[in-house]
Design a protein around this nucleic acid. Structure first.
Ligand code: FES
Ligand code: FES
Lengths: 141, 141
DNA sequence: ATAAACCTGACTAAAATAGTCAAGTATCTT
DNA sequence: AAGATACTTGACTATTTTAGTCAGGTTTAT
């Protein structure tokens, strides 16, 4: 079980962005340099974040990205969904009545993985971007 | 974030095995058929489980595997550790003082992933093989 | 003896990941 | 108007990981 860097970078970049509090757009170039993430890769990520209306783009010189919602309203769940970082512990399709082994009943562990998935999603549902920023400021003091 | 089938199979096979309550060894061949898992793959998995003393092997004709501890004492944590299914949400090395970006401080999200890792491991630490079997019996009623 | 079943290590196809690269388009500043 | 900055898109690719397979053993009950 690991987290992919796409999900990791998305959150990292958004925390960086959110710290500027919507005063003015932040360029991906700056984020790239500050966070050590490839610019081209960031572009892919922000393209997805924009489509899901998590950020807004400002084109042209001095442009960049701004949060499209309040930091409090952006949960990790939303971010992960936007960049396709899904939690997938079940092998089978959840809706299907078939098990992961191709049999007509769910496998011995189906229920366990389902619980696990919920357990993890709870965590993501509870954390907002605002929480992360606060946490970051506290640590600096 | 997904669970690999190695971890999934390990747990699935052990639940199957545990249901026989140590009365007599269960052959991998049987588990393979019942659970729809490749025999060769199961052998790899059980080799690791044996090295970590989670199961005991009985060689020869009518041989197979038996649990080496009480089902209550086998936590998911132990199983996952045995088959190298680790939860890895951090990018950096935990001990190192360097961040995942190569910089000398931890990245903006380091703490978040660390929390997440603990959150997930809590789940694994709480679940024993016995819990899974009970859960399975209840469902059948 | 022979068959069942464990044991080991090496090998490999396929999928996913983590990017790179190229060729734009829009808008601000001067 | 020109130039620079920065967003936008889509295709491409190297690397790594996963999920096995395969071949050739060894052990032990009957
Ligand atoms: S994970 Fe759903 S049936 Fe096995
Ligand atoms: S995950 Fe540890 S420093 Fe980034």
């Amino acid at each position: 079980m690991k987290l992919t860097s796409k999900g990791r970078y998305a959150v990292m970049a958004l925390v960086d962005l959110a710290k500027f509090n919507n005063l003015n757009p932040v360029s991906l170039r700056d984020i790239s340099i500050r966070q050590g993430i490839s610019l081209d890769y960031l572009e892919q990520i922000f393209s997805k974040l924009r489509k899901k209306e998590i950020v807004q783009s400002v084109r042209g010189n001095q442009g960049g990205y701004v949060l499209n919602k309040k930091a409090k309203e952006i949960k990790l769940t939303n971010i992960f969904e936007a960049v396709d970082e899904k939690v997938k512990t079940l092998q089978c399709k959840k809706e299907s009545k078939k098990g992961c082994n191709g049999k007509s009943t769910k496998c011995l562990t189906h229920n366990l993985w389902d619980e696990l998935e919920n357990h993890i999603n709870d965590f993501f549902e509870k954390k907002s971007l605002e929480d992360l920023i606060k946490d970051n400021i506290e640590r600096r003091l």
